[in-house]
């Protein structure tokens, strides 16, 4: 293959994978936007989502879409539960306390998942028969298309919620000024709960999509994608919703290009390199917050 075909091919693969990074990154960024917390347990929600989907598909024999919806719902409930139990009591504590708690929650969920689901990987059921699609010299798979399509659909849905519904506007208001939001009569606790629910549901969908894509799930599957999505959120500008989407696609693409033109040993190193570069060159991220408040 000539180099530019490889380039195009890898960009396409990168966009497909990146769409899932974007889904996960949205949860990081929304939670950060609203309570200034890096929710390190978010990757574990993604992992749980994959398992919920797995059980819905295998034990309950549900079709893909209901399985995904149920997994998203369960993940939403768990996300709200974590916020309620682990983070809410620390909301006025120093930030480091909540951060350490988040890391603890992440490790706890991993261990519990390992105990209940077993440490070894499970093959994800092949609900959709594998198909290769050729467009000129470029190859696509139907799974990539589904992954990309579902991710984009969910992002559009999120956009509509955040911009056009009452609760979405309340979310944005709370992220801009919590006290002013309270003075509007907004129940800030409820809005924060809702934010965790939405972020967790998106991560769960991502977990299922990736389970289908790689054919396997395991209790540690949340660690690397969680980290990469976190970097994606920082790259785009943490707290900025479109930034998470942009960051996710860039991360997915960068990773695939490095693997194609460099070496697959660097697959996971890309994330760290990007993180260091962003922190050095543009800590507020690509679409980082403009300060346009007048006082």
């Amino acid at each position: 293959m000539v180099w530019y075909t490889i380039l195009i091919q890898q960009i396409i693969n990168g966009l497909a994978l990146g769409s899932v990074y974007a889904l996960i990154a949205l949860g990081y960024t929304m939670v950060y936007g609203i309570i200034k917390l890096i929710n390190f347990a978010h990757g574990e929600i993604y992992m749980l989502g994959a398992y919920f989907g797995f059980f819905a598909l295998t034990i309950f024999n549900l079709p893909l879409i209901p399985a995904m919806l149920i997994s998203m719902l369960l993940a939403a409930i768990i996300g709200m539960g974590i916020e309620r139990i682990a983070y809410r009591p620390l909301r006025n504590a120093p930030r480091i306390a909540a951060l350490i708690t988040a890391i603890g929650a992440s490790l706890l969920i991993q261990s519990v998942a390992q105990l209940t689901f077993g440490a070894s990987f499970r093959p994800f059921p092949q609900v959709i028969p594998f198909q290769r699609i050729q467009v000129g010299p470029i190859f696509l798979t139907n799974r990539q298309l589904i992954m990309f399509g579902v991710a984009i659909l969910l992002m559009v849905l999120l956009h509509l919620i955040v911009h056009y519904t009452k609760i979405g506007k309340a979310m944005r208001a709370v992220s801009m000024d919590k006290e002013a939001a309270l003075l509007m009569g907004i129940d800030v606790d409820k809005v924060i709960s809702f934010t965790f629910a939405v972020g967790s549901a998106l991560a769960a969908a991502g977990g299922i999509l990736v389970g289908m894509y790689y054919n396997r799930i395991d209790p540690y599957m949340g660690i690397m994608p969680g980290l990469k999505a976190f970097v994606a959120a920082v790259l785009g500008g943490i707290g900025v919703i479109p930034g998470a989407v942009l960051g996710g696609f860039l991360m997915g693409t960068a990773e695939n290009l490095v693997v194609a033109f460099g070496s697959s040993t660097y697959r996971d190193a890309v994330a760290f390199a990007v993180l260091i570069l962003v922190l050095l060159l543009r800590p507020s991220g690509l679409l980082g917050k403009r300060q346009n408040e007048k006082v």
């Binding site: 944005r172 208001a173 801009m176 002013a180 003075l183 346009n292 007048k294």
Partner: peptide, 10 residues
């Protein structure tokens, strides 16, 4: 409130 506290990006 003091200082207006409007939601700047809305």
């Amino acid at each position: 409130p003091e200082g207006r506290r409007v939601f700047p990006q809305l």
